[in-house]
């Protein structure tokens, strides 16, 4: 099969989208898990502050999520815009 330039670029965009989201998901997945782990530990030690600790956990995870969302945005751009 003959491959034209435009097609090759589109194919690279698809591969890029897959790699961006696939690799980009690793960090936030592990990072948010660490936040969850420490929140459980802190609640185990100091249950009275469970509400505050859950809130802090969610804020921390939300920030750690941002790179995952960047990956999602880049993947969607590669798939549907460029």
């Amino acid at each position: 099969m003959a491959i034209e330039g435009a097609e090759l670029i589109k194919a690279a965009a698809f591969l890029g989208a897959g790699l961006a989201m696939g690799l980009g998901a690793i960090g936030p997945g592990v990072g948010e898990g660490m936040v969850g782990a420490k929140a459980c530990e802190a609640i185990g030690k100091n249950p009275e502050e469970a509400g505050l600790l859950t809130r802090t956990m969610l804020v921390g995870q939300a920030v750690s999520e941002s790179t995952g969302i960047y990956s999602l945005v880049v993947a969607l751009l590669l798939l549907f815009v460029v």
């Binding site: 980009g24 948010e32 936040v35 782990a37 459980c40 956990m57 995870q61 939300a62 999520e65």
Partner: peptide
């Protein structure tokens, strides 16, 4: 915590 970490 797990649900949030699942999102990616």
């Amino acid at each position: 915590g797990q649900a949030v970490s699942q999102s990616t």
